[in-house]
């Protein structure tokens, strides 16, 4: 069967093959677990165990997403790495994970929203629906993009998984002045946006030192700052952020 024909199926041609899901699990591990977790429970990528998928629910939707990725998101395409037959096996594996239940998210969404914009101070660094600061990741559709467990970890232990673009950059000028923020570092220059939202660009040769650490600028003190119930409220709000049906 040619790859092209294989890819044009609307239903998984391996759906009746009991070995397909097992084989798909093996292929899933190296390519998918870094973002979706070993059991598809989600992480940096969406939870795949819910049985509903934002890219569409047909087998061909899942195939297309794995093959081509989702433009505008962190989901890359794997068509050049994984042969069509194995993509279908991965689709079979993902189907086998589905629990078709709605996870019980404790907490009060409305209270969480209020916390987000007030006591939590989250809005000073994160955008939701066009409002908020720009230093941290945009959260408008974060409930669709991240699993509940990942969001909980991100709130309580933000240094556990830091994307490269949110690493902390510290520049020290020759006069000792220090600027800390996020930005871009190359072999000869550095660009930094600090907590106030001010943007700086330097040639590294003009600086005393530059360091980049895989450490988040987000405080790791929310576990102490907020009560347990407040954490639940905040998470209920984050999980509810579904954004537009298709990413911008």
């Amino acid at each position: 069967m040619s790859g092209a024909c294989f890819a044009q199926q609307t239903q998984n041609p391996l759906a009746g093959d009991p070995q397909a899901a097992a084989g798909g699990g093996a292929a899933f591990r190296p390519y998918c677990t870094p973002c979706h977790g070993v059991r598809g429970q989600g992480g940096r990528g969406p939870d795949l165990t819910r049985g509903v998928y934002s890219v569409g629910d047909k087998d061909s939707d899942l195939f297309r997403t794995i093959a081509n990725g989702v433009p505008g998101t962190e989901m890359a395409g794997f068509a050049s790495d994984i042969r069509d037959e194995d993509i279908w096996r991965i689709v079979a594996f993902i189907r086998s994970l589905a629990r078709h239940d709605v996870p019980n998210i404790p907490g009060d969404r409305a209270a969480g929203e209020k916390l987000f914009w007030s006591k939590g101070g989250c809005g000073s660094c994160h955008v939701v629906n066009g409002k908020g600061g720009r230093l941290g990741p945009q959260l408008t559709r974060i409930g669709r993009e991240r699993s509940f467990a990942y969001l909980r970890e991100s709130v309580l232990a933000p240094n556990n998984d830091v994307a490269a673009e949110y690493a902390t950059i510290t520049v020290v000028k020759h006069d000792g002045a220090k600027i800390t923020g996020i930005g871009d570092l190359d072999n000869f220059s550095v660009q930094v946006t600090d907590a106030a939202g001010d943007y700086y660009s330097f040639l590294r040769s003009d600086l005393g030192s530059v360091t980049r650490e895989l450490r988040s600028l987000m405080p790791d003190s929310y576990g102490r700052l907020l009560a347990s119930g407040e954490i639940d409220d905040l998470l209920a709000y984050l999980v509810s952020l579904r954004g537009a049906e298709t990413p911008r």
């Binding site: 084989g23 591990r29 870094p34 042969r83």
Partner: peptide, 23 residues
């Protein structure tokens, strides 16, 4: 990573791949 992979002529045959180490 490693998995068992059957050989099919002309198709990818590396028996898995590498992932980046988190952080």
């Amino acid at each position: 990573y490693r998995n068992r992979q059957e050989f099919h002529q002309g198709q990818w045959y590396q028996a898995s791949t590498e992932a980046t180490v988190p952080n």
